[in-house]
Design a protein around this nucleic acid. Sequence first.
DNA 1: CTCTAAATGTTAGTCACTAACATTTAGCGC
DNA 2: GCGCTAAATGTTAGTGACTAACATTTAGAG
Lengths: 193, 193
Amino acid sequence: MTDTPRLDPERTTKRQRTLAALADAGLELFERQGYDATTVGQIARAAGVTEMTFFRYFAAKEHLLLDDPYDPVLIVAIAGQPRADPPFLRAASGVRAAWRALPEPEAPMIRRRVRIIAQTPALRGAMWRSTGNTERAIVEQLVADGATPGVARVAAASVLAALVAGLYSWAEGEDASLADAIEDALDVIVVRR
Amino acid sequence: MTDTPRLDPERTTKRQRTLAALADAGLELFERQGYDATTVGQIARAAGVTEMTFFRYFAAKEHLLLDDPYDPVLIVAIAGQPRADPPFLRAASGVRAAWRALPEPEAPMIRRRVRIIAQTPALRGAMWRSTGNTERAIVEQLVADGATPGVARVAAASVLAALVAGLYSWAEGEDASLADAIEDALDVIVVRR
DNA sequence: CTCTAAATGTTAGTCACTAACATTTAGCGC
DNA sequence: GCGCTAAATGTTAGTGACTAACATTTAGAG
């Protein structure tokens, strides 16, 4: 769901710099004064750029926090689950595997983002809409492996909900490991064998 | 989560009439031209009223569709579950019981609303934010009955996600019974005994 | 039928976001 | 280093959701 308008791959580097400047400025301002109280204009100015330019990098204010490129990994992980298992279990195990494979160093940044999201009702909604894409992808995979669409949708939705809830809880704390938090969340829902 | 500014209970009836007019006009316009393409001004005009007045009845455009007074029933139902069961099961059974108790005649109206929501990404997000309140209430109840906050949050979130997913599937069709659809959705997640 | 509170209207403004068009600047080939 | 072009940014103007302060009408309790 990234919407950086990448026209010509690797033409310049200026683009990457302003992108980083905007992302940094946004995250800092959100943390300092809250998401709702922060204006797109403020972020742009802090990054030494115009409001218009902001929207050339992020289609919406919320996209500053909701750019997740994690979907493909997840799908592969789910596809790798044993077909004999019911869809719900396959989805859960896939999510477990995918997040266990996430590089540790990313955790702190994820934590900062998730914290802001958890604190902002508008963003919690946006988060869910964002996972809508992930959900669709999971459903596709489950159906391809023989599940009913209705069943697949419920399985995907509830597993993702557990994941997100786990992320929120994890982000509140300081020391817990991301992978462990996800494991614990999924254990609430799935009967471990 | 109703935000009709009810100042003096049962003082007049004009209020109820304009409220109904706005709700009807909104639903019809949404169905005819889509949610995003429908302007609050249009709804207001169709109801013979000013845009400003609309916002005196609904705090936001989305509230036309997301006014659910079902929470209290749900909480009672969850509280009535056997404490011996794990939180996840208690939440699921509570939801099941609550929706089984819903009066049949309400179904068609719910279907119209859910259909619009399901078709509109922005509303899917809003829907989730709206269930946030329900989620909080469920978590409170589960914790009061001895669950860990972390566990309770995951349980509540995933059960609600299953419920919503079930609602979306149900709304697509024409004839299925609401209660049955919810049952089926929850069966995907919970191991029935 | 009156009189007050409730209901509605008016005006003006903010913020997220879009579109069309003008201008600068960065970095490639030379 | 230097020019040239495409990429990056800016400008202006506008829409739609929503808020606030204040003025006006109207409905209905007495």
